[in-house]
């Protein structure tokens, strides 16, 4: 029975110890929950504040008016049109190039110094501050190429920012496709490009799309590089319409036009001392936030769905 007593005494000691240790567990769990809850509340308050401040301006006039020296009548017409046109350029430049580069790196490039070099570059480009891209664009597009402070310049600049995002997401999506799918296609006599186009790219489409949406959302909110290339902050006219009523129904004069974009309009209004302009800024901010959160939300949902659905 001596052994028995010994055991029971030990057990009591152990239980006391566990209780003590578990206290640390509960303390940390409490701290963790508190931190997450505080952050959630803080961010919620910030966003709500933005929406509430901007609410009085949220009407159709705001979207159909030009900016003005009077805060009351000012709107974001030139800004949202400018943002849309710039994004069109960005999309058509960054998507084909990014997807092609992603395909090259995953499917074609042989392991070696060249592939490594591209890879290191892509990884580093993703971390370069956006304002540096602005400087590159200022020196290269605005002056070397003589494109001026135009929609084309802004679109190209933002496509530089978006490129690494598209490349990385394309690669990840392609990498998730197992070898045996490719082997099955090769086995029936497909060429490499046919395998890539008919199979790899098809199955990777969801992942590629995610990257494109996230990249576009980022491009909408980017301010610094567009300021750096010298975008005007006060624009009370619209660029020429991309669509015309004469054959061939499209023109490219808009590419050359001066412009402003939503975040620059917001920045401009924040910098004014009058409170009335701050309301305009809040409303613009709310528009930007809603757009980017919506786009990112769709992308993240898409990604989770893909992860859940596809089991090779």
């Amino acid at each position: 029975m001596a052994i028995n007593d010994q055991n029971i005494k030990d057990l009591n000691a152990i239980r006391k110890l566990i209780k003590q240790h578990k206290k640390n567990d509960s303390i940390f769990a409490g701290v963790g929950l508190f931190v997450i809850a505080t952050l959630a509340v803080a961010l919620l308050v910030l966003f709500l504040d933005l929406v509430i401040d901007g609410y009085p301006k949220m009407n159709l006039d705001f979207f159909s008016n030009f900016p003005s020296r009077k805060a009351e009548g000012a709107g974001i017409l030139s800004a949202w049109v400018g943002s849309s046109l710039v994004l069109i350029v960005t999309f058509f430049v960054a998507v084909p190039m990014g997807v092609a580069a992603g395909i090259y790196l995953e499917e074609y490039a042989k392991k070696g110094w060249f592939a490594d070099l591209i890879e290191i570059n892509v990884a580093n480009l993703a971390g370069v501050p956006s304002i540096i891209y602005g400087l590159l664009a200022l020196g290269l597009f605005v002056y070397e190429f003589g494109l001026g402070q135009s929609i084309l310049t802004a679109g190209l600049t933002l496509s530089l920012l978006m490129l690494p995002i598209v490349i990385v997401s394309t690669r990840e999506a392609i990498r998730a496709i197992p070898v045996h799918i490719r082997e099955a296609a090769y086995a029936v006599g497909a060429t490499k490009w046919q395998v890539t186009l008919h199979h790899v790219l098809q199955y990777a489409m969801g992942g590629v799309l995610t990257g494109i949406i996230i990249g576009m959302a980022r491009a909408i909110g980017e301010t610094a590089p567009v300021i750096t290339i010298g975008a005007l902050t006060f624009i009370a006219f619209l660029p020429p319409s991309p669509v015309t009523d004469v054959v061939p129904f499209i023109n490219f004069a808009w590419l050359d036009a001066g412009f402003t974009v939503l975040p620059i309009q917001m920045f401009n209004w924040i910098s004014r001392p009058e409170h009335a302009f701050h309301i305009n800024a809040a409303a613009t901010g709310a528009v930007i936030i809603i757009l980017t959160l919506l786009m990112n939300g769709i992308a993240i949902k898409l990604r989770y769905n893909i992860r859940k659905k596809i089991k090779w």
Partner: peptide, 15 residues
């Protein structure tokens, strides 16, 4: 020898 049912919910897994 202490007749503990180690699966018992009241018994701490850590113990």
């Amino acid at each position: 020898p202490d007749n503990t049912n180690i699966l018992d919910k009241k018994v701490d897994p850590i113990e």
